[in-house]
């Protein structure tokens, strides 16, 4: 039998139904843990802090009504690119995705997964998808609400900007980039948590890398999550002073390539995580 035929046969013989139901079970368990656990409170604070401020702005700052849409558009873009993309989603994903495996080790409960009739690849994928779903729900909702508060208080002018202007496109782009950020950061942090007992210090290195990648050679820039994300951001910010770090794109790539590049990077990292999890043994030492 040719290797192609063998591969086709093993593909056909694979227990897809079992894997699918296991993925569903992991998804349910992990999403519930990530969204409803008390330890996630700080992630909510990180995500909804700016939303609260923007809501306050909408209630208090009536002076700018009708004349401030361009100003607020720039403000929204700054908050999204500098706060959410660089720090909020970064730290949120750091908390959520490192907990997926490292947390199970800390709570000495990973062996329950390892003793299930489940491929470890299925476990990695299930946990990753659950992490992406949870982080997307939290940060997507916060970005959506921030957007609604930002333009909602302009009344008809705001609605006009959203439905007949560039507003809706910007919102879609913000949400899309949020999902991609969760995928990108999530894959990195999950892999880091499988390699390091304390993934925070490598996480700090990554924060520096993501912040200063703009000054690195262009081929190294492509190994950064934000390289792809900032190109997809709908509003371009002026590269003034320190903001240049967040806005300058040395070699821009088309949107499809940016999305594809980021997804490829994430898949590569997940493949690495697959190797790591296959080698993993249960050893609950003090963490």
């Amino acid at each position: 039998m040719s290797s192609m035929a063998t591969a086709r046969k093993s593909w056909g013989d694979a227990p897809w139904q079992l894997w699918w139901s296991q993925l569903g079970a992991i998804f349910q368990i992990e999403v519930k843990k990530a969204i409803w656990m008390r330890r996630s409170i700080w992630i909510y604070l990180v995500a909804f802090g700016p939303t609260f401020l923007i809501a306050l702005h909408a209630i208090v700052d009536h002076a700018s009504v009708g004349v401030g849409i361009p100003v607020d558009t720039e403000m929204m873009a700054t908050i999204f690119q500098v706060y959410y993309l660089r720090l909020g989603i970064f730290f949120g994903c750091l908390g959520l995705f490192t907990w997926l495996f490292r947390g199970e080790v800390v709570e000495k409960s990973l062996h329950y997964y390892f003793l299930s009739p489940m491929r470890r690849e299925v476990l990695v994928l299930g946990k990753f998808v659950a992490g992406v779903a949870a982080s997307t729900v939290i940060f997507g909702t916060s970005v959506l609400l921030s957007f609604v508060f930002m333009y909602g208080h302009y009344g008809a002018a705001g609605r006009d900007y959203v439905y007949h202007g560039p507003g809706l496109g910007q919102l879609m782009a913000y949400l899309g980039v949020t999902v991609l950020a969760c995928i990108g950061y999530g894959s990195v942090f999950m892999a880091l948590s499988l390699v390091f007992k304390n993934p925070i210090l490598p996480g700090l290195f990554m924060l520096l890398w993501e912040t200063f990648h703009a000054v690195l050679p262009s081929w190294l820039q492509k190994l950064s999550i934000t390289f792809y994300l900032k190109q997809l951001s709908p509003v371009t910010l002026a590269p003034d002073g320190i903001m240049a770090l967040f806005t300058v794109i040395a070699e821009p790539v088309p949107a499809w390539l940016a999305v594809g590049g980021l997804l490829c990077l994430s898949v590569a990292i997940l493949l690495l995580a697959r190797i790591l999890i296959r080698r993993m043994e249960i050893s609950y030492l003090a963490d």
Partner: peptide, 27 residues
């Protein structure tokens, strides 16, 4: 089936959920 010596459980589960979830993970 393996009943380990680790006296630990996934956080926040009831006894029933603990057994039920492990069966769901088995497909």
């Amino acid at each position: 089936g393996y009943c380990t010596q680790f006296d630990s459980f996934p956080k926040g589960v009831t006894g029933f959920e603990f057994v039920f979830q492990s069966l769901l993970l088995r497909g």
